[in-house]
Design a protein around this nucleic acid. Structure first.
Lengths: 143, 143
DNA sequence: TACCATTAATTGTAGTACCAACAAAATGGA
DNA sequence: TCCATTTTGTTGGTACTACAATTAATGGTA
C-alpha cells in the first residue's frame, strides 16, 4: 500500500493520485532538466511545435490550462528565449505564440526523451492493465 | 480521449495524470469549501485526528510532504484556529501538532463527506477495473 | 456616433510543492 | 567538558495552478 491503508489520508483517491502525480512529475522534471525546461514548459513546446504562431487563447485551451497560468509559464519561457509573444495582426487584443531557435533546435531530442520515459513506464504493465488504467483516468477526466 | 490523442501533450502519461489530478482536486475542493478547508488541509486533519499531538516531523512523514510545505499549510490552519503548534517537552527543537475545538467539532462530518465522494467515484467502475487502476497507481508510486 | 456587452490577456492573491540556506537544539565522541 | 555532527523547523526563492479583478480592444446596436 502507498502507506498504511487503514489510517490517514492514504485511502482517499485524490490523495493517492496527487502523490503519484508528484512522483511522476519529478521523474520527468529530473530528466528534462538537461534541457533546462520543466514538464509544464515541455507541454507548451509540444503544442507550439505543432502549431507555430497559434493564438495564446487557443494554446491555453489545448493545454487545458487557465490563461493566468499560461501567462506566467510563458513569462519564464520568454526569459529563457524558448518562445516569443507576437502581436496578432488581426486582433490587437490577441497574442501569437512562436517557437524560437533555441527551442526548435532541441525539440526533437526532448520529444524522444519524453517518449522513452513513457515507454519505460508502460513496459512495467501488461497491455490489458495499462488499457484499463487509461480508461479509468479517461473517465475521471470527464465531468 | 482526454483531447486529440494524435498530437499535443495529451499522449504523455504525466500530462494525463496531472489533468485528472486537478479535476479531482477541484471536486474535493468545492465540496470541502463548505467547511472552509482545502483538500490538503483535510489530509492534515485526518492524520492529526488519529494521532493528536504528534510531532511535526512525524506528521510530514505520514503526509509524504516536504517540511517546508507543511509549515505553510500549518500556518494557514493555525490562523483559522483549526490546529495548534505546541512545544515538545522532550525536545525543544520539535513541535507537537494538536487539533483545536473548531476542527474536532466537524471532523466526523468532513470525513463522511470525503468517503461519500470517494464512493461515488468508485461506483463508476467495476471492482476489477478499480483494483487494476489502484494496482498501477501503487506501482507508479514505488521508485 | 455613442454606448455597452463581450472577449483577450495580465495582475493580484492564495495554495501547493520543493530545494537550499539557516538557526537552534540535541547528540555523541574525544 | 568541548566541539563537530546531526536533527528539527523556518525562511527565502522558484515554479505551477486557479480565481477574481482589471485593462484594452472588439463588435454590435440604439
Amino acid at each position: 500500500m502507498i502507506t498504511d491503508n487503514s489510517c490517514g489520508p492514504s485511502k482517499y483517491i485524490c490523495y493517492k493520485l496527487s502523490r503519484v502525480m508528484r512522483k511522476l512529475y519529478r521523474y520527468y522534471e529530473s530528466n528534462l532538466s538537461t534541457y533546462g525546461i520543466t514538464p509544464s514548459q515541455f507541454y507548451v513546446l509540444t503544442v507550439v511545435w505543432e502549431n507555430d504562431g497559434l493564438k495564446f487563447k487557443e494554446l491555453a485551451k489545448r493545454l487545458e490550462m487557465d490563461g493566468s497560468t499560461l501567462t506566467s509559464i510563458l513569462d519564464r519561457m520568454e526569459r529563457q528565449d524558448l518562445v516569443e509573444r507576437r502581436d496578432d495582426p488581426e486582433d490587437r487584443r490577441s497574442l501569437l505564440v512562436c517557437l524560437k531557435e533555441k527551442a526548435r533546435a532541441n525539440i526533437l531530442e526532448i520529444t524522444n526523451l519524453a517518449e522513452k520515459m513513457d515507454q519505460e513506464i508502460k513496459e512495467r504493465f501488461s497491455r490489458e492493465e495499462y488499457a484499463i488504467f487509461e480508461k479509468v483516468l479517461e473517465s475521471l477526466f470527464q465531468d
